[in-house]
Amino acid sequence: MADGTTQRVLRLLTLLQQRRTWTGTELAGELGVTDRCVRRDVGRLRDLGYPVHASQGVGGGYQLGAGKALPPLLLDDDEAIAIAVSLRLAAGGTVAGTGEAALRTLAKLDQVMPPRLRSEVRTLHGATETLPGGVAQADGEVLTTLARACRDAVRVRFGYTSRGGGRQERTVEPVRMVATGRRWYLMAFDVDRDDWRTFRLDRMADVVATTWRVPPREHPDPAAFVQRAVTAAPYRHVVRARVSATAAQVRELLPPQVGAVEPDGDAAVLTAGGDQLDWLAVHLALLPWPVEVLEPDALRDVAAELGRRLARMAR
């Protein structure tokens, strides 16, 4: 196909991916061609393996369907970056059973991706760590902006909505993003509070990377810092308990945002936070393994009272 025809066919494919059904007249108007030219371009797409269906009558038109084999995909920049990042996370083991297939797919995508996009993906991957478990969605533009800021060591400004619903303007020096099973977090040095903080990406708005370069700082381990922040720091009570199971078994049952799990010989030590000790006692009691309370002592009293209440209910 000539260059002009190729560009028009790619534009036609983009239109078919954007909406469920198009009439021939609508497509001709978008492309600036005749209905006959649209029919020829639809035939070219079919020759390339794209299942374009055509129907007559009221409500009819052209529709891109699912085929027996996967044809080449047409992706814009944001879509290509999002897919590549997801594949890198999956290849790293954050999605069970997908590592090998993700690596194969990532290799194919990396081979055809333009150098500028390949650089963006590697920047984002280098600025991200993951805790075990699935990874939640995040705004691609925010991820890319923060990844560049981590790479370039520049300050970032954004509006941030607190747990109480209030909004504040924050200025930080970002270090690393951490993906948990539910959310994405940024670990950064908060300039106004003169301390390390974590920020949920879904609570950020109007994220802007400045040109203010910052010198390197000694910083905590990002993954450990974020895990402590989401499992213990926000809560009134923090409990530690020894569970008669391996750390791997406990982690399989409890996502990282619920509690931190460390191996302790043949057992595991679970650290978790909560605002009510009785609810913490209930959740520990529901674990399918024996549990020994390490701290606080008050949790033992709460567990004993819970046991008495359950015994009375069982009479």
Rank of each mutant, 00 (worst) to 15 (best):
L277V: 10
A127T: 12
R308G: 00
T145V: 03
C37L: 02
V226F: 11
P288G: 07
G133T: 12
A2Q: 14
L131F: 06
T231I: 10
V58M: 11
L15N: 10
R40H: 08
A147W: 12
G126K: 14
R176Y: 13
L299N: 04
A149V: 07
V52Q: 04
V154T: 13
G43W: 07
D192F: 00
V52W: 11
G166Y: 04
A102W: 11
R309M: 00
Q227W: 10
M204R: 03
T25V: 12
A314K: 02
R148A: 12
E295L: 10
A248F: 04
D110V: 09
P222S: 09
Y185V: 11
P51L: 08
T34E: 05
R46K: 13
D264P: 06
T6W: 11
E262T: 05
H283E: 08
R228V: 15
V191I: 06
A247F: 13
V291S: 12
E262H: 00
A153F: 02
D190Y: 06
R122P: 10
L143R: 05
R309A: 02
G49P: 03
D264H: 09
R167W: 09
C37Y: 06
D76M: 00
T271G: 01
L48R: 10
T105N: 08
Q137M: 11
G57S: 08
L13W: 09
T161A: 11
V282G: 04
T14S: 12
T5M: 13
L106Y: 12
A54V: 10
T105W: 04
G61C: 02
R200C: 06
T130F: 05
L294H: 10
V154D: 03
Q63V: 07
R242P: 07
D77N: 00
R300C: 00
G92H: 07
P256T: 07
L270T: 08
R116Q: 15
V208S: 03
G126T: 14
L186I: 12
E79T: 03
A153I: 00
G49F: 09
R309N: 00
E100V: 05
R242E: 04
Q111G: 08
R312S: 01
R182I: 13
A127P: 14
E252W: 03
T231N: 04
W279E: 11
R118I: 15
M204T: 09
V258E: 09
G60P: 13
R251G: 01
A188S: 11
G4Q: 11
M1E: 14
M313R: 06
L89H: 09
Q63N: 01
L13Q: 10
P132H: 10
G307N: 00
T123I: 15
R300F: 03
L89N: 14
